[in-house]
Write a protein that binds this DNA or RNA. Structure first.
Length: 820
DNA sequence: GTAGGGTTAG
């Protein structure tokens, strides 16, 4: 097809941008200031000509190319009307080069022809091309009309080109259009789209008169800049000034209402829609569905959906999204299936929502089904869809598949990297997460707040203070330090590194906090054994606007538990339902059993379990068994353990705990019996692991393992160390039986992972330094005791962080009030 | 008119 246009263009070759002014200055004066229809007389023979008709009816570039030879053949090409029509059609179909090839050779160029070209450049080419053509128009002395400016302003707005938008605004003023309604609406729209809503409002405010379009422009401007309340105020003002909000007003205001999650306002808008008789418009109903589901009224959304005579795919998408966000992914999937059954073609948004639902359900099978569907729908190349796939696989714990999808993705965006980093971080692959973060940076992809929020928890898991400070520096350099998500993650990270004061400083510096921010800080105090501070902070929270949620109560009850604040803990538990209407979950019951049991109120704890309104689960009996181990209660320990064996038959840890309870009561035959059962059923205890940070490297140790390169030295050193600490008064806790044979018990006592880590730390640091180790399971009583003596003998500060709390050993004294 | 990635607890 291009050959045709080339031969045609060769009739009079020209270029698009250079100008021969002597040629084009000849627009007759009497033609100025007339519209095209007034100015041009259309001879009836032209309309009757088949080629003219064809041209009029053409819908695509290809058709145009086919008609062109006909026009040339019949000598119609010199006709004014045909030339103008061709320029306009080429512009419309986006072929500016062809349009210019027709445009340039025309000797007598009408103003309207220039205007058509400019419109073409503005809507189908680059802003640069449009602007240079605009300059040329001035050079050619073409009188400028308002629409020349509004087209350019629209492009600037759409592309967010504030600087050039301002320039055009300036020229518009210079040409005397500053009180023209259309022009100023265009200017206001440009500023609003460039996120300069205050400037947009100034323009709006100065308008001597306003029409529906200018009202809609400023209202949608506020709505799209996230200032829903201001947008709504303007709707009210608009109403007061006698302008009735129309379809466009409603469609721009509803997403804003949805964003501020105000059901009350949403209902008011809905009322208006009904009164104005707008409910039959598909996009209005769809926007209503979106609003209701975001405001938590999925039922109403569904009611509207069911009542719709016409639906489109967006209506379905909004409904599916509503179910996913409303915490009902199962219903979302049912809806998705229903949509497929009814033969509605899914779009990429549909697929993303469905994948989101699978991720929420952890439903790998249906996730794979959708993945397969993608190829059939030819949506598998859409980056956003692939990003959702990566996320779905990671959330279904198939991080390897996610990584494979990521690897095969051609145009990885920042979001793709973020999804992969988060996927690794949430699946416990900390090193991979950090490596990908480094690789992302080395590829000059600038991390954003989402990247930070994915990486920071990974670093929190490592709890290496130096890394923590590094990422904090990156956060500040990237200006993410005002982002609540990022700062909350930082608070948690510092707390997990033991730097609770730094965490609190960050907390105090925040202007706005989420409930998660409070939770992170309350939990930080709980983990550090400062239950009082946790309770104080919880009380501060209750005075503010942010209401505690279920997790807040898990944190605060657990904080009370670890500090022995039984009364306070019970008070929180009661208040949870009474004052906040939060129904306790298994975690809360577990925390309560831990609170009572740890403090020695074992009978109360057992009674509490019996009175639970829901079937007690693993967490509850786990807490009970733990308490029985601490307080050496055989009877209740057996009961709890027996329930645990039924509930989680694959976990060997409960058997070990029970054996330890028997051992503390010298019931050796029962110890042997438990041991036999374990052997028969092939049960194993999840191995403990300790991590130690040394000179910016992290070393990991498993109990009884010899995999560390310095392993031989460590074991040899441990032997002498045990002698030394025994001399200082350490008595190995022989009550604690471990998961292997008796004869190696002595050796095992000293080869628990935390002891290996400490021995390694002592070997590689000088006296006076701090050894900071982290244990991924709870520190055992004997290790706790041993650490006390090691700290005394070696004169070093040893900080052990277990899953629940920190133990600071200094001169043999542990600051924690935990009960062992 | 709809959308891809997010913090806390266990």
């Amino acid at each position: 097809m291009s050959s045709q246009i080339l031969s045609f263009a060769s009739l009079r070759p020209t270029t698009t941008t250079t100008t021969d002014s002597s040629n084009t200055k000849t627009t007759p004066h009497h033609l100025h200031n007339h519209t095209l229809s007034q100015r041009v007389y259309i001879p009836s023979h032209v309309y009757k000509h088949p080629a003219a008709l064809l041209l009029e009816l053409s819908t695509s570039l290809d058709e145009l190319y086919r008609i062109l030879p006909l026009i040339i053949k019949h000598g119609l090409y010199s006709e004014h009307l045909f030339q103008t029509k061709l320029v306009s059609l080429f512009c419309k179909h986006g072929s500016l080069i062809d349009a210019a090839r027709v445009f340039e050779p025309i000797e007598l160029k009408l103003d309207a022809l220039y205007h058509t070209m400019l419109k073409g450049y503005a809507s189908n080419s680059s802003l640069d091309d449009a602007l240079s053509f605009f300059c040329r128009m001035k050079y050619d002395d073409v009188p400028l009309v308002v629409y020349n400016f509004t087209y350019l302003l629209k492009v600037c707005g759409d592309k967010g080109e504030l600087r050039r938008g301002k320039q055009i605004h300036g020229q518009l003023v210079a040409h005397g259009f500053s009180s023209n309604l259309f022009a100023m609406t265009g200017v206001a729209n440009m500023y609003a789209k460039c996120r300069q809503i205050d400037e947009a409002y100034k323009m709006f405010d100065r308008m001597p008169e306003r029409d529906l379009v200018s009202w809609n422009t400023i209202i949608s401007g506020y709505a799209q800049n996230g200032l829903a309340r201001m947008a709504l105020e303007l709707v009210v003002r608009m109403h007061e000034e006698g302008r009735r909000p129309d379809l466009v007003t409603i469609v721009s205001i509803l997403p804003a209402v949805a964003n501020i999650r105000s059901l009350r306002i949403g209902k008011a808008v809905h009322g208006y829609v009904m009164r104005a008789g707008l409910e039959s418009f598909v996009n209005i109903s769809t926007a209503l569905i979106d609003m209701y589901s975001k405001c938590g009224s999925v039922g109403t959304a569904r009611f509207i959906f069911d009542g719709m005579g016409n639906r489109n795919v967006v209506s379905w998408n909004s409904m599916i999204a509503g179910y996913v966000e409303g915490g009902n992914p199962e219903e979302a999937m049912k809806f998705f299936q229903k949509m497929l059954d009814e033969g509605v073609e899914p779009t990429n948004v549909t697929i993303m929502e469905a994948l989101h639902a699978c991720a929420a359900l952890g439903d790998f099978e249906r996730g794979v089904f959708i993945h397969k569907l993608l190829d059939r729908l030819k949506l598998g190349t859409d980056v956003s869809v692939v990003n959702s796939l990566i996320s779905m696989y990671s959330k279904c714990k198939k991080v390897d598949i996610a990584a494979n999808v990521f690897k095969n993705l051609q145009n990885k965006t920042r979001v793709s990297w973020n999804a992969m980093i988060l996927g690794y971080a949430q699946n416990g692959c900390i090193n991979e997460a950090l490596n990908y973060f480094c690789e992302m940076r080395s590829r000059n992809l600038i991390p954003d707040s989402f990247t930070m929020v994915s990486v920071i928890p990974a670093l929190a898991e490592l709890s290496v203070t130096r890394h923590a400070k590094c990422i904090h520096a990156l956060v500040i350099r990237g200006c993410f330090d005002k982002n609540i998500f990022v700062t909350t993650a930082l608070i948690d990270m510092y707390a997990k590194c033991g730097a609770i004061d730094t965490a609190r400083k960050l907390f105090d510096m925040m202007n706005e906090r989420h409930v998660t921010t409070w939770n992170a800080m309350i939990d930080a105090y709980g983990t550090h054994g400062v239950g009082k501070a946790a309770v104080e902070l919880f009380n501060d929270m209750q005075k503010g606007v942010i209401k505690p949620n279920d997790i807040t109560f898990t944190c605060i009850i657990s904080a009370c538990s670890h500090s022995g604040l039984v009364v306070e803990g019970i008070h929180c538990f009661t208040s949870m339902k009474k004052d906040y209407g939060i129904e306790p979950t298994m975690d809360h019951y577990g925390a309560m059993v831990d609170l009572l049991g740890r403090a020695g109120h074992l009978t109360e704890a057992w009674d509490f379990i019996q009175r639970m309104p829901i079937e007690p689960g693993i967490t509850v009996f786990g807490a009970m068994l733990g308490a029985c181990k601490i307080h050496k209660n055989v009877e209740l320990g057996e009961k709890a353990a027996n329930r645990l064996f039924e509930l989680n038959p694959d976990e060997g840890g409960y058997h070990v705990l029970l054996a330890n309870i028997y051992a503390s009561a010298s019931m050796w035959d029962k110890v042997a019996k438990v041991r036999t059962i374990m052997e028969e059923e092939g049960l194993q205890k999840t191995p403990g692991c300790s991590l130690l940070e040394l000179r910016n490297e992290v070393h990991s140790f498993y109990s009884g393992s010899t995999s560390h390169p310095q392993s031989k030295r460590i074991y040899a050193f441990l032997e002498t160390l045990v002698d030394e600490i025994k001399a200082a008064g350490y008595v190995p806790d022989t009550d604690s039986i471990h998961d292997v044979e008796d004869d190696v018990q002595e050796q095992l006592l000293s080869s628990h992972s935390e002891k290996l880590a400490i021995a390694f730390g002592l070997l590689n640091t000088s006296p006076g330094s701090t050894i900071h180790i982290r244990k991924n399971l709870r520190v055992c009583g004997d290790c706790h005791n041993a650490t006390k003596y090691i700290s005394l003998v070696s004169g070093r500060e040893i900080i052990v962080r277990d899953m629940h709390r920190f133990h600071h050993f200094k001169n043999g004294i542990c600051s924690c009030g935990d009960y062992w």
